[in-house]
């Protein structure tokens, strides 16, 4: 099992939480993400630095699965977070209390978390933010440009 410690890549990554769901935005890459269930919980725990085992132990108090099952389910999720640069490894850990999740009532079924990633923000920089429809007019939407041409509406040259 991966023994590395991770933390949320702040301040480049910002997020907001909504009733167990979470929206995260990476300000430097322009990617934005949606996380739900155990994924949202794990992400919030990562704001305080954690290894995969520590995450598994904390999530076990809320989800009906063993620490091992949860930790196994978290491995690809953490890899996805790392690939999206939403988390970074911690070389020197800071002292903190054991991770805890607020728990109410019975344990919830555990589903291995997944990360929904959206990379269309770069094109939002480039495209007209006001009215993106095709040349034939409403309601046909403008097709995404595979290689956006810079220098319009916020384009970086």
């Amino acid at each position: 099992m991966d023994s590395r410690c991770f933390r949320v890549n702040a301040p480049s990554v910002i997020y907001e939480q909504f009733d167990g769901e979470l929206v995260a935005i990476h300000l430097d890459t322009g990617a934005y993400h949606s996380l739900q269930g155990a994924g949202a919980d794990a992400f919030l725990l990562l704001t305080e630095e954690a290894t995969v085992n520590e995450l598994g132990e904390a999530l076990e108090s809320k989800y009906a699965a063993s620490v091992d099952q949860i930790s196994q389910g978290l491995v690809p999720f953490l890899a996805a977070l790392e690939a999206e640069k939403l988390i970074t490894t911690v070389e020197v850990r800071r002292p903190r209390d054991p991770l805890r999740l607020p728990v109410n009532g019975a344990k919830l079924p555990f589903q291995a978390p997944s990360l929904e990633a959206y990379h269309d923000l770069q094109s939002l920089f480039l495209l007209d933010p006001v009215h993106e429809v095709g040349e034939q007019g409403w309601p046909a939407a403008l097709e995404a440009k595979p290689n956006p041409v810079p220098d319009e509406d916020g384009a970086r040259g």
């Binding site: 009733d19 769901e21 929206v23 300000l27 322009g30 934005y32 949606s34 923000l121 939002l124």
Partner: peptide, 16 residues
């Protein structure tokens, strides 16, 4: 949901 609205409002507002 508020999250759905947030996904529509926040990325495009912040990006520009």
């Amino acid at each position: 949901s508020a999250r759905q609205a947030m996904m529509a409002i926040a990325p495009s507002s912040l990006a520009q």
